[in-house]
Design a protein around this nucleic acid. Structure first.
Length: 235
DNA sequence: AAACTGCCCAACCGCCCCCCA
DNA sequence: ATGGGGGGCGGTTGGGCAGTT
């Protein structure tokens, strides 16, 4: 899916990401975490906008992104959620761990929308109604168990907030802000780290998720806490 | 084998919201 | 109170590719 750059005039590169760019972004985030998307590209050695970097990370490079076909269950969830919430893809994605809003949106437009058109009234049995919330719950738990590869430096208050922060605390400030990533990740040792990046064990996230799971156990009424948690992460 | 067609999906765009000074 | 900056979100685009003619 290579997309040619639309504008050659700007200094910022557009279009498809190269493997080298991916490596640079991954290595930088692994090393310094996500502190400011708009200022990260330069020290990371990327001629990209912050938005482009964020999008690439969120939709493609982030660990634990599920790729491949959607399961029947996932389809059901998307259909149900879309019916209830409309095109709130991020909210729907929050219910499908490992799936990105972009992926869900694409899947909706390429598969499910057509199906809905052919069959405008979704057949929703009472059984499905009863099962789907449980399914959503178990999906969330499953995902939390499998997120073991997340070991990215994060600020203490950024656990579920997409590691984002408008803070000006630059973790790379110890080095020259404009030092390029080549200087930071150019060593064979660093690329060796890269290779094992996704296989690394839990850090802060695991403890955090255990707390959340404990809350599930304590109170059945909290079955929807994952939804609330994702829906309003700052709450 | 070549031309055509339609689909898929990565990436861009622009708007909106939130936070902070 | 407010304005600017940054991030998030939904809509849209368009290149590549597989299937069809």
């Amino acid at each position: 899916m290579v997309r040619a750059p639309r504008c050659e005039k700007t200094a910022l590169k557009k279009g498809a990401w190269s493997p080298e760019e991916d490596e640079k972004l991954i290595a930088y985030i692994k090393r310094y975490g996500i502190w400011n998307w708009s200022q990260m590209p330069k020290p990371a050695g990327l001629s990209r906008s912050g938005k482009s970097c964020r999008l690439r990370w969120v939709n493609y490079l982030k660990p634990n992104i599920k790729r491949g076909n959607f399961s029947k269950e996932e389809e059901e969830i998307i259909l149900q959620m879309q019916e209830r919430l409309g095109n709130k893809w991020s909210a729907i994605a929050a219910r499908l761990p490992g799936r990105t809003d972009n992926e869900i949106k694409n899947y909706w437009h390429s598969h499910l929308k057509k199906r809905m058109k052919d069959n405008p009234v979704p057949t929703r049995t009472e059984l499905q109604e009863a099962e789907i919330p449980n399914l959503l719950f178990s999906n969330a738990i499953e995902a939390s168990k499998s997120e073991g590869s997340m070991d990215i430096p994060m600020s203490p208050h950024s656990s579920m907030d997409e590691y984002s922060s408008s803070s000006s605390n630059d973790p790379a400030i110890g080095i020259d802000l404009y030092e390029t990533i080549e200087a930071n990740i150019g060593s064979p040792e660093t690329f060796g780290e890269l290779a094992s990046f996704w296989a690394q064990p839990f850090s802060q996230e695991s403890l955090y998720m255990e707390d959340i799971q404990a809350m599930f156990v304590d109170n059945d009424a909290c079955n929807d806490i994952w939804f609330n948690f994702c829906w309003n992460p700052r709450a």
